[in-house]
Amino acid sequence: MNVEDRLFLNRFNADDRSHLKVIDPEVCLKCKRKQCSPSCPSKCYTIQDGKAVVAYEGCLECGTCRIVCNEFFNIGWKYPRGGFGVSFKFG
């Protein structure tokens, strides 16, 4: 099963504002590894013109992107506002 189909099974209450942020997209141009993209278990990050673009709606709130962006620390990571984001039925 591909990741998009998997995420479709989860319950999300997406906020209208993103809790994830690429702090300075220009900095991504200096980054050779671009680990955010392959490491994210829900494929929130895509690389466009060498810069990371984030889609927060399917975020599982694991925190991996924050950990792997350890060269430039270019990801602003917060929890979604109270009650928003993923809501696990089983966990």
Binding site: L9, S42, C62, K89, F90
Partner: peptide
């Protein structure tokens, strides 16, 4: 995906329906 298609693991979950996908550190 690769884990779930491992020939020793697959028979245990065959026919099952994934109802949630989660991740955690």
């Amino acid at each position: 995906n690769q884990m779930e298609s491992h020939p020793v693991i697959k028979p245990l979950i065959e026919g099952g329906e994934i109802k949630e996908y989660s991740a955690h550190l």
